[in-house]
């Protein structure tokens, strides 16, 4: 836990790709067991923000502290940090040449050094919880998109992370498959997992989030409890964005 009581704390985080500043002076605090939703149009910097927290991208300025440890310095054990943080991607990124069980057990076995028996028992238990135990020996391409994404979530959970980053995990799914994935995320939230979600699912954000942040052009323009940001936004940009989403029929 951080000194100021936040599990994740970003101070003045700035990220550039060449001349393009994709994140500008981002300040964000996430308390333990809280869920923070990042909303905003595509290209607003939501994904980049998540990727910075996992060090898949290096920040150009500012600092990030996770679980009391600064991660933006030079002497950071990236692999150790990443074992504390699970990330789930929009495109699932399951390993296609491995079965579901191998996907879930590989990192615990090879990165954490857990024995095969233990890792498999744990993986099966997790898969049972999401009702996919009978798919253990299937290859990812035999599963539906929703099932694949649920396996990806379980894979990220298998290393015992304290923080989950979910990067638009339902954006690539058919509408009828979104529900099962959100249900799993809902359960995770209820179990007290600290999470940061980039999402376009506004009603879901309203339901699970403790805090909603609206990003536009790399800047957090508005943040607050979901009922405030989503129902009574203060900023003109937020209102415009939500109006567009509403037209799209997603609210």
């Amino acid at each position: 836990m951080n000194a100021n009581g936040h599990f994740v704390s970003l101070q003045g985080v700035t990220k550039r790709f060449g001349d393009l500043e994709v994140l500008h002076d981002i300040n964000l605090d996430v308390s333990e067991h809280n869920v923070v939703c990042l909303i905003g149009a595509s290209g607003s910097g939501k994904s980049t923000l998540l990727r910075c927290i996992n060090l898949l991208e290096q920040v150009d300025a500012g600092s990030i502290v996770v679980d009391g440890q600064p991660i933006t310095g030079t002497k950071v054990d990236v692999n150790q940090l990443r074992q504390k943080i699970g990330i789930v991607f929009q495109a699932y990124n399951l390993f296609p040449h491995m079965t579901v069980l191998q996907n879930v057990t590989l990192a615990p076995r090879k990165a954490l050094g857990i024995s095969r028996d233990k890792a498999e028992a744990h993986a099966r238990a997790l898969l049972r919880q999401i009702g996919l135990e009978e798919k253990s020996d299937e290859f990812p391409d035999r599963l539906s998109g929703g099932q694949q994404q649920r396996v990806a979530i379980v894979r990220a959970l298998a290393t015992g992370p304290k923080l989950m980053l979910l990067d638009e995990i339902t954006s690539a799914l058919d509408p009828q498959l979104i529900g099962e994935v959100l249900e799993l995320v809902r359960e995770l939230a209820q179990s007290g997992m600290t999470m940061i979600l980039a999402t376009h699912e506004m009603s879901f954000a309203r339901e699970v989030a403790h805090k909603v942040c609206f990003l536009d052009a790399g800047v957090i323009h508005e943040e607050g409890p979901p009922e405030q940001v989503l129902s009574a936004p203060q900023e003109e940009r937020t209102r415009e964005f939500l109006a567009r989403v509403l037209e799209g029929g997603r609210l």
Partner: peptide
């Protein structure tokens, strides 16, 4: 091989060499 494969592997705490050997090279 899609970049996401390496990212998924390293974000699970696997080192570069391990991810290369177990995830990228077999594919």
């Amino acid at each position: 091989i899609d970049k996401g494969q390496m990212e998924a592997a390293t974000s699970l705490g696997m080192r570069y060499g391990l991810a290369m050997r177990r995830i990228v090279l077999p594919q």
